[in-house]
């Protein structure tokens, strides 16, 4: 299990680092194999930072991230188990090299002894899992492939390592609608193969489609979390409700009610279990059990 416990990220800003800016404020969440958790937030919510901290690309300022109870130490062993896919597939490839290089890097670092034929078989297997024909993508340069193909190839790259967890940060936001859904379906496939996926997104309809659990982040803090059906079907925090209300749908037009700004949850606030498994940030009431 990959567990985040009260993870915090602060940056020093201003002249001489005099002020601190809290990007992520006490975020706790669990990721278990065979489950997709969507981490939902708007720009500045800290959702990408959470993903980067899990991947060890950004150091943690406070709290802890543990894998099966042991503190995370980014390095080869860790990356064999926890992998990531990013938002911009075009920027993930070194433009001067062929796309095969992202796979080759894995081979050099993790499978130096593997024979050529065996490796090719392994690559073919991963490409198969992301439904890419090897002849279509291998030996090409990044600019010769579409965003969807590049993104699926990056997922195939991660699969070469047989990871247990995958952080997918806005992986569909640069893709067209007609290819986006295929990448989402792929995440669902991986989940059924036992992978735990953290699906970071700003798009609620995608989170709703693909995940079992949803965590809503607002200004670096979790404001609501729980099973996707409960969070989306019965939003308890005004911010979640507002987000859901703003999502354009094909089934209904927006009503004419003007939006009220969402007030900050008054302090001190904690995550409260409002119904089984469904947590919402509130000012604690004495009769409710606080968990954070």
């Amino acid at each position: 299990m990959l567990r985040l416990d009260a993870v915090t990220k602060t940056y020093r800003v201003g002249a001489f680092g005099g002020r601190t800016l809290t990007a992520v404020d006490g975020v706790s969440l669990d990721l278990v194999p065979g489950e997709v958790v969507s981490l939902i937030g708007e720009s500045g919510s800290g959702k990408t930072t959470v993903g980067r901290m899990i991947l060890g690309l950004t150091p943690v300022s406070g709290g802890s991230i543990t894998l099966d109870g042991a503190p995370v130490r980014p390095g080869k062993d860790y990356y064999r188990q926890v992998q990531g896919v990013f938002q911009d597939p075009f920027s993930c490839y070194n433009p001067i090299f062929k796309v095969d290089r992202v796979l080759q890097m894995i081979r050099e670092e993790y499978f130096p002894g593997t024979a050529g034929a065996q490796w090719e078989e392994k690559v073919a297997e991963s490409l198969e899992a992301v439904r890419l024909a090897p002849a279509l993508v291998l030996g090409k340069y990044p600019h010769q492939l579409s965003g969807g193909q590049l993104q699926r190839l990056l997922i195939a790259r991660a699969l070469l390592l047989g990871p247990r967890f995958l952080v997918a940060d806005e992986i569909t936001s640069m893709l067209d609608a007609s290819t986006r859904i295929d990448v989402l379906n792929l995440l669902a496939d991986l989940k059924s193969r036992g992978l735990g996926v953290l699906f970071v997104t700003h798009d609620l309809s995608l989170g709703n489609y693909v995940s079992e659990r949803a965590v809503v982040l607002h200004r670096g803090r979790v404001v609501e979390s729980g099973p996707t059906g409960l969070v989306f079907g019965n939003p308890l925090h005004p911010y979640t409700a507002r987000l859901l209300d703003s999502v354009p749908r094909l089934t209904a037009r927006w009503d004419g009610v003007p939006q009220e700004p969402v007030p900050d949850t008054p302090e001190p606030s904690v995550l409260v279990e409002a119904e089984p498994g469904h947590f919402v940030r509130r000012v604690p009431a004495p009769e409710l059990r606080s968990v954070s």
């Binding site: 690309l57 992202v102 890097m105 790259r157």
Partner: peptide, 13 residues
Amino acid sequence: SRDFVDLARLSGV
């Protein structure tokens, strides 16, 4: 800050 550098880090390079 380009993603391919992050990806190399994720590959244990």
